[in-house]
Amino acid sequence: MKDLLGMMSKAKEMQSKLQALQEEIALLEETGQSGGGLVKVTLSGKSEMRSLKIDPSLFKEDDVEVLEDLILAAHNDAKAKVEAAMQEKSRELTAGLPIPPGMKLPF
C-alpha cells in the first residue's frame, strides 16, 4: 500500500512538473538563420513564427527564389533548435524515471 501511495505522490509531482515544463516551453524562443545570417527566423516553443529579419542586400528582383529558400532554411533551423531545447528540458525533467524508450514528452 505504501508503494501505491508513493507512486501516486510521484505521479502528481510529475504532472505538476510537466505542466511547468509546458509553460516554460511556451515561453521559449529560438532563432534560426540561413545564408550566413542574411535571413533570421525566430520561433516560439510552439513553433509559431515570432519574427523574420531579412538583410536588405537580398532585395533584388532576380533573387526571389534564393530569398524564399533562405527563409525556409532559417525557419527549419529555428524549429530544429526549439525541438532540441524541448527534448533537453524533457530529459532533465525525467532524469532517473523508468520511461519506455521512444516515449516523447511532453505528450
Rank of each mutant, 00 (worst) to 15 (best):
L58N: 08
V64S: 13
L67K: 07
K53N: 15
S57L: 00
D77T: 04
I54L: 15
H75N: 08
D55Q: 06
K79C: 08
D77Y: 00
L58V: 09
P56Y: 13
F59G: 04
I71L: 05
I54V: 15
A74N: 04
A80V: 06
H75P: 02
H75T: 12
D69Y: 03
S51H: 03
A80S: 03
D63W: 09
I54E: 11
L70P: 09
L67H: 10
K53I: 14
I54F: 11
V66S: 13
I54D: 11
D77A: 00
E65P: 05
R50G: 01
E65A: 13
A73V: 05
I71M: 09
V64Q: 14
F59V: 11
L58R: 04
A80K: 06
E61K: 12
S51E: 09
A78K: 00
D63V: 07
A80C: 02
L67A: 07
V66T: 15
L67D: 06
E65T: 07
A78C: 01
E65M: 07
D77W: 07
L67C: 08
L58T: 07
D62Q: 13
N76E: 14
V66L: 15
K53M: 14
A73W: 08
K79V: 04
E68P: 04
S57V: 12
D62V: 11
S51M: 00
S57P: 01
K79M: 13
L67V: 14
E68L: 07
D62L: 07
L70I: 01
L52E: 03
F59I: 11
N76A: 09
V66F: 12
V64T: 13
K60T: 15
K60S: 12
F59R: 07
K79A: 13
K53A: 15
L72A: 10
R50I: 13
E61I: 02
A80P: 01
A74K: 01
V66G: 07
S57Q: 11
D77F: 03
H75Q: 09
D55W: 10
